[in-house]
Each structure stands twice: as structure tokens, then as C-alpha cells.
Write a protein that binds this DNA or RNA. Sequence first.
DNA 1: CAGCGCTATTGACCTGCATCAAGCCCCGCA
DNA 2: TGCGGGGCTTGATGCAGGTCAATAGCGCTG
Lengths: 257, 257
Amino acid sequence: MNIPAKTVGESAVTRKCTHDYRVSCGNCRLNTLCLPLALDSADVERLDNIIQRGKPLQKGEHLYQEGVAFTAVYAVRSGAIKAYRVTDDGREQVTGFYFPGEILGMDGISKNAHACSARALETAAVCEIPFSHLQELSTQMPDLQRHFFQLMSREITEDQQLITLLSKNTAEERIAALMLSISSRNARRKLSATQFRLPMSRIDIGNYLGLTVETVSRVFSRLQKLEILEVSNKEIKILDLDALKEIANVHVCEDDE
Amino acid sequence: MNIPAKTVGESAVTRKCTHDYRVSCGNCRLNTLCLPLALDSADVERLDNIIQRGKPLQKGEHLYQEGVAFTAVYAVRSGAIKAYRVTDDGREQVTGFYFPGEILGMDGISKNAHACSARALETAAVCEIPFSHLQELSTQMPDLQRHFFQLMSREITEDQQLITLLSKNTAEERIAALMLSISSRNARRKLSATQFRLPMSRIDIGNYLGLTVETVSRVFSRLQKLEILEVSNKEIKILDLDALKEIANVHVCEDDE
DNA sequence: CAGCGCTATTGACCTGCATCAAGCCCCGCA
DNA sequence: TGCGGGGCTTGATGCAGGTCAATAGCGCTG
């Protein structure tokens, strides 16, 4: 309960683990790693030892770039990160937004080089988890191994949801689905599910959902006019959650377990 | 070199491992598992023991269905499988086509239930690899663990490529990319990279690429008229590979390693 | 080998989103 | 307080691809 992961921006005091977005979990290590993990204190200690501090990222700063050697995966502690790749014709495809409690970088494992770039959307604190250590520890801790298999599997199913979304859905459905996704991720962090600030620009949203800025903007306006959303720049307030779900009709995984 | 995986449809004789699409690899186990894996013969034996025969699937038959308990991942030995999910509004999104030497089913790990359905596009032989055994063995064989991390990571990067493709590319680019993908996967199996039979219908292609049947058909016609492809129903012949790559301009990963 | 059902092709038309083009708002800075 | 540049919004227009419809071809079965 009180051997929290090391993160820059947290004083020695906060290592007592009371905290904000991490309340959902009984165990500290687990907060960094996103899923319940039953470990004895010796294992917690060992795991703690491999998790590295990283200096906090400023807005726009890269966590890693496409093509660089893959050495670690990263857990977001605060702020928000976007992962993206740049296509040959110069377009940017955002492959994911990552919020506190989420892990990114697992795309790099297969080729020992990152397949995406990742940069901070706002000031962000991130934990680095060296992959070689993680692998080693995983052979000794079956639960940890299982945990990472699950995390990667989740990444796969989330990507597949995005594929489905991009495949045939209208602009409205895409935006609605994204808003619901952010909303439910907020809820899991015990933040408001109906009111939040978008850390990303309209361009980022467009590059994630396969839409142009103009369309994104128009959809927000339309949803505002319909009194489903209240939008003022980056501040979002969901006025009619059911209507939003109706529009998305894609069931945004309420993520059980 | 001669303790091949058990598969229905292979006689005891073929267990000598010379064979067809598997020639690329020096080691047999590796053929089932898709990546080079340096194992001593004792480990090979143990691995062999957990890989199960499955009865061959007839065209249209399900390997597993969305929502059913996840117990195993599957290696395709012959034929072709499509993985897909059905959206709330009844559309079918194909999430992947799987050919011999490829592994599917890893989407089920995170929730202990399959997130997709999988069915045979034509008669197919498949090996079942019970996941619980795989996990156990992985803790004892670090190479195997690494291997599966890599496989899952590869699935992630492939999904991300599809996301990019669906996001903003034209119908022509999508079809070209798919043809190139199939072509290079054939090449890896030492089959012709320029001439092959599509195991899936136009509908499946459409459901994979986010297009309607009509559009798929029109694009094939157009590419035929441009003398880039020769299409007769499911038989494809690539006449101008460079032009096709030009159109795709997305670099379809030639998959190193 | 005739007939049926399913898949594929082709054409005509329509629509949702991209594109192009202003204009606006917000915020930092002098 | 005024200026400039970025991000955001809104409008007008065009086009890729969806939709609807008709036909053609393939493969199965009796």
C-alpha cells in the first residue's frame, strides 16, 4: 500500500500513495500497471526497483520517436500523450491518446524499434518500465507475465474498435464514440464523466478519427445545437449522455473486470 | 528438425518436416509459431506436447465466436481464416485475414473471451495452442515468452497500419495495399508473389477495407483496365508491381527479421 | 444440363465529407 | 492596449464513394 512507483513530480511524501486518479486501486504498483495484480511485498519491491523516473515532459515534447530503438514501455502518471505515425505522404495518423493509468509503447516490441512516435499533449509525468527487466521479472512472476499479455491484448482490441469506427461510421458517430471513450476513462479515474477538458487540438482529433479539422468543428457545433454537448473550445460538457450513446451506437467498451 | 506440430490432415510421414509453406524455417516448431526460436530438443518436445490437433475446418465453419470463453490461440497450417466482429447495427467488420504460418486469437486474452469471431474462408487446418499451457511454458522458456510478446506486438502494429489505411486513403490505395500485403505474405511462404487466388469474397474485402462490394469491384475493374492487375473472379495476377506500390504509397511492411 | 441462388459487375444518381476560402477568437507579447 | 499568429469556426462548392437497380457469371444440386 505504500511503495509507490517513482515518478518525477512526486515528492518523497507522496510516495505514501493516497492520491487522486489512483484511488480506484488498492495496490500502488497496480496503479502504474493498470490492472489488479496480487503480489507479495517482496515482488512489489522488485517491481518497484525496475520502474524508472522520467523527467516530466513539456507540452509538445517527444517521449519517443518512430524508428528509435525500443527499450521500454511507459505508464502515464499525469497529463496526456498522443501516439502517432506519419505516413509517406506526410499525413499524421494518431493511433491513440493515453491518459493517466494507461500504458503505451508496446508497439515497439516486435521489431525492437518504435512503430509510432509519442508526444505530450500537455505537461505530463511518465514512468519508464525497461522492457528487458520486465521480461526477466515476468518469467519469475507469472502474474506479471499474464498482466502484460492482457495489456497487449487490450491494446489490440482497442485498435480493432478504432478500425471498426473508421471503417464505415459517420463523422458524428466517430466524435460521439471518442467523447464517450474519454468520458468513461475519466470515470475510471474518479473524475467527472460529463465534464472535462480535451487535452488535444481539433487537428489531433481529426487525425485520430480520420476527419478534417473543419468536419470535427462542424460536428461539435451540431452536437451543441442539438443540446447534446456544450462545447467551448476545449471544455466539454455532456448534456445528454443517452443521446450521445445513441449516436455512437457503437458500444464503447465500459471495460469490465 | 523433425518433431513437427500435430495437425489434422498431415500424415505421420509429413511429420518429417520438409514441406511446402514451411520451408522458410529451419526449425519445425518455429513454423507453427511464426518466428525463429532457438530451442533445444527437450524444449521442442515440451512445446510440441501442448500443441493440439484440431479437426480441419470446412469453408464457413467457425473456429471460435465472439464472446465465447478464450482458452487458446490458433496457428493456421493451411487454408485461410477471417476474423471479424459484428457491430451493433449489423455491419460486419473484418479485422484480419490469416494465412498459413500466422497466429490468431490473441484478442481474447484481455477479457478471457474472444473479442472477434473467426471462420474459415476455405477448408483450413489449424493448430490449437492452449493458452494456459503456453503461459506456463513461457515462464520456463524466456525465448517463448519473448516470442509471444513479439507476436502480439506485431498484431498491434498491423492493426495500426489498417487504421492508417482506413483513415484517409482512397479505395484504390486500400485495395492496392491489400493486394501487396497478400503478395508479400505469399512470398514469405515461397509462393508466387504475383499470381494467387483470393480466398475471400468481394464482400469480405469490402468489410475489411471499409468499402462496399460495388466499389471493390469497380476498383478491380479499373486496375485491370490500367493493366496493373489481371482479375478474373478470385484469380489475381499482378502485372505491374511497381505501379501497384506506387498506388498504395503506404509502405506495406516487407517485414524484416 | 437445366435451373437456382449467390457473387460479381456495371450504370445512374445522390450525399457526406473534403477542399478552399474567409473570418473569428483566444492568448501571448510589446 | 494594440498587434500577430495560432487554433477554431463557418460558408460555398466539388467529388469519391455510397446507394439503388439491373444484369451477368459462377457453381451447386437434382
